[in-house]
Design a protein around this nucleic acid. Sequence first.
DNA 1: TTAGGTGCAAATTCTTTGCACCCTG
DNA 2: CAGGGTGCAAAGAATTTGCACCTAA
Lengths: 160, 160
Amino acid sequence: MTHPAAEITGSLEVIKAACRKAGIKLTAQRLEVFREVADSTDHPNAETVYLGVQKRLPTVSLDTVYRTLWLLEDLGLITTLGPHRGSTRFEANLKPHHHYVCTRCGMTRDLYHEDFDRISVPAEAHSFGTVQTTQVEIRGVCTHCTETTSERRSKGPVRE
Amino acid sequence: MTHPAAEITGSLEVIKAACRKAGIKLTAQRLEVFREVADSTDHPNAETVYLGVQKRLPTVSLDTVYRTLWLLEDLGLITTLGPHRGSTRFEANLKPHHHYVCTRCGMTRDLYHEDFDRISVPAEAHSFGTVQTTQVEIRGVCTHCTETTSERRSKGPVRE
DNA sequence: TTAGGTGCAAATTCTTTGCACCCTG
DNA sequence: CAGGGTGCAAAGAATTTGCACCTAA
């Protein structure tokens, strides 16, 4: 699944500006890793991002993907989600949105709901630090897991 | 930090009922693992829970702690949070509450705010599956990280 | 009694690190 | 051309698994 070309071009500008601002180099790897995350509507883990980037940069290494993902999170360009079979998942921060998460299998879906975007932050939160984003996470058991009724997770998280 | 005795006793009833309902055995390990999580106001990882349980059950093994934690999550008695230096953190589901999370260091604090407890779930969410809980997650940079200004995370997540 | 649960230790899986070479600014 | 960035390969951490013994129901 792919975003419109205009948005991808937008991402390019976003990361260029962010690197300049942070005083770090803009490399092909950084560009492609960000593009890969911004270009997916699901929530890829490091391995998946690596495979995607590899199509454009065949010599890229998995460790660079990791380093770049953490860097981008640090720059505020992407966000991490809870783990999926032990591996962290990432998503681009392009628009305000929220999540539905299955507690049984870990399936995660984006949810767009304007009411949630307008939630006001309690004073207490400001005492902890700055506020960048406010997200609502709805947890439950997805329809797929509900259908396979008695099937309980036996050995650790079998996710999404 | 400890909850009042009444709440701990309450946890005992909670897990007894849950095991009976799920048709699984109530073992000392399950009881103590749940108690350990319910008894902490911070967000322990598997290792920390293990160390705590070990004080009461010296022969408990780390793998049993893992198995039990996932089981309890499955039963809906505890919830997982995002990773902290790669390891998943857990918390008991005793009361509705929300989180402040530092995107720089991963520090997580509970937030009690009745307005958030009353948030209404959009119809779209129900199409994904059942709805158990709705939590608000506020992300930002905590005061500690803000003070150590230019210090950017260089090598992976250095959390909390 | 007896199937589910546990402990142990080895195996996997995910992520990080040290170092020498490369390339952006 | 200088210092940050990358690739490689090996290390390290977190979590899972197979199996034989144990114990709650």
